[in-house]
Nucleic acid binder design. Structure first.
Length: 429
RNA sequence: GGAUAGAUGGCCGAGUGGUCGAAGGCGCACGAUUGGAAAUCGUGUGUACCUCUAAAGGGUACCGUGAGUUCGAAUCUCACUCUAUCCGCCA
């Protein structure tokens, strides 16, 4: 949701950005949007003039003589009626305009690779050695069964498809990963915060989930609430409508929450195991910073660096993908994905998604700050990145670190979070 | 679930029909004072939009949200939302 004035003044640029993101004129008609805005401005001017006149008359009434008074009142009433008519028309147009504005995506960074879909994503770097096993490696499901780490078949009976129940050392590992990442984020100055998984509707618009992908989110009609797909949703609205002091920035949150996704568009994909489930746990990095593209790009790099460090500490081979314009969601200015190596699938799978949203969400949540330099009020920039998301991250973790006897090595950095244990599994001593 | 109370500017808080964008305080900015700072004193300090513009200026709206009464609403009426406290229940 960029500024309408910016859209008018930079129409060519905006249309170019929309095209890069794969928008056609049918998706979003910028000319119609601008036309609508012009109509609103004209009507507003006209109705404000009426209001002005009416106010002037009202002010006279108190001091008017007894014989003038009825005339003034009558005139004022007349104007009032015309004003009401125009005002109603104005509300209608504004509602239409606002709905349209909610559909305007963020413009992509000039640095972002241009492409139609995920085929246009660019590998920026590949880190770590892909393991070569001198035995036949198990996939993560086999490892779980072998070590009595899960109840996948039974939980499907209870909770349906795409759910998981893991136990014993694997359950401990899942929680240890979050504790490890939360501690790391705290050391970088983030406030650790646990947040709810239910949300009212408004924050979904604030985040930019709505009006774009309603199918993806669980809805609780009895309470008119939604289940959150990520703590980003909650953190993005936590400070909504506030006017911050620049000295409060940047605000760094490490948010932990259970997350829920319907996976409506993923039918048939990753149906087994821990890769894609309806409910998972995520530690999220969320940053609120100044309205300065250099500043937010700096944070974007920093967030990426932190999650790369997580994967390195977990001793996982991974690659950094820069997501192309056509594969980015509407809110995003620039996006990197991290993908960790999954031996059983012989490919990299996404574990982290790191986005600079610039001021797009802040405009929706009305989150602003007063700049020290000139005292002006500006929208903040927001950024988000996965800290760690489980159980998905367990998949590359246990597959890459497995031994011939079915045990799994715990990387040195994580051992303190596992009570000093170096190897887990039924054959471990 | 039951019962009360409340929602005003960056924050706190006054304000029961026109002189209220709104007292006072805090905060913030600038200035004076000081060797420097604190304290003190002085001055200033809302947001959004429209119009005009080189700049200034002019105007409209906003006191939780929505409707209503009135020539005129922060103030009166109605509905709703949210918050706090107490009781009950509860991980």
């Amino acid at each position: 949701m960029p500024d309408i004035k910016f859209i008018i003044e930079n129409k060519a640029l905006v249309e170019e950005g929309l095209a890069k993101k794969g928008y056609t004129k049918e998706d979003l008609d910028i000319d119609a949007l601008i036309e609508l805005y012009r109509n609103i401005a004209a009507l507003k001017t006209s109705s404000q003039k009426l209001s002005e006149e009416k106010n002037k008359l009202s002010a006279q009434i108190k001091s008017a003589s007894a014989e003038d008074r009825p005339d003034i009142i009558a005139k004022s009433k007349e104007i009032g009626e015309e004003f009401k008519r125009q005002d109603e028309e104005l509300s209608k147009l504004e509602e239409e305009f606002n709905l349209m504005m909610l559909k305007v995506p963020n413009l992509p960074s000039p640095e972002s690779p241009i492409g139609p879909d995920d085929s246009g994503n660019v590998v920026r770097r590949v880190v770590g050695e892909i393991p070569h096993f001198d035995f036949t490696p198990k996939d993560h499901i086999e490892l779980m069964e072998f070590n009595d780490w899960s109840e996948m078949a039974r939980i499907a009976k209870v909770s349906g498809a795409r759910t998981y129940a893991i136990k014993n050392d694997l359950a401990k590992l899942e929680l240890a990963m979050h504790m490890f990442v939360l501690d790391k984020l705290r050391s970088y100055g983030f406030s650790v915060i646990t947040v709810p998984s239910v949300s009212k509707e408004k924050p979904l618009y604030g985040q930019g989930y709505l009006p774009f992908s309603r199918d993806e989110v669980y809805y609780l009609p009895q309470d008119d609430l939604y289940l959150s797909g990520t703590a980003e949703l909650i953190l993005n609205s936590l400070r909504a409508d506030e006017l911050l002091n620049e000295n409060e920035l940047p605000i760094l949150y490490a948010g932990f929450s259970p997350c829920f996704r319907r996976e409506a568009g993923a039918a048939g994909k990753d149906t087994r195991g821990l890769v894609r489930v309806h409910q998972f746990m995520k530690t999220e990095q969320f940053v609120i910073c100044k309205d300065d593209i250099n500043e937010s790009e700096k944070w974007h790099k920093k967030l990426l660096e932190i999650s790369e460090e997580v994967l390195q500490d977990f001793e996982l081979p991974y690659r950094v993908l820069e997501v192309c314009t056509g594969d980015m969601g509407a809110p995003k200015y620039r996006q990197y994905d991290l993908e960790a190596w999954v031996p059983s699938q012989n490919c990299y799978r996404e574990t982290h998604s790191c986005s600079n949203i610039t001021d797009w969400q802040a405009r929706r949540t009305n989150l602003r700050y007063r700049a020290n330099a000139d005292g002006k009020v500006r929208y903040v920039h927001t950024l988000n990145n996965t800290g760690i998301a489980t159980p998905r991250a367990l998949v590359p973790f246990i597959e890459n670190h497995q031994n011939a006897d079915g045990t799994v090595n715990i990387p040195v950095k994580l051992q303190p979070y596992m009570g000093g244990v170096k190897i887990i599994g039924k054959n471990a001593k």
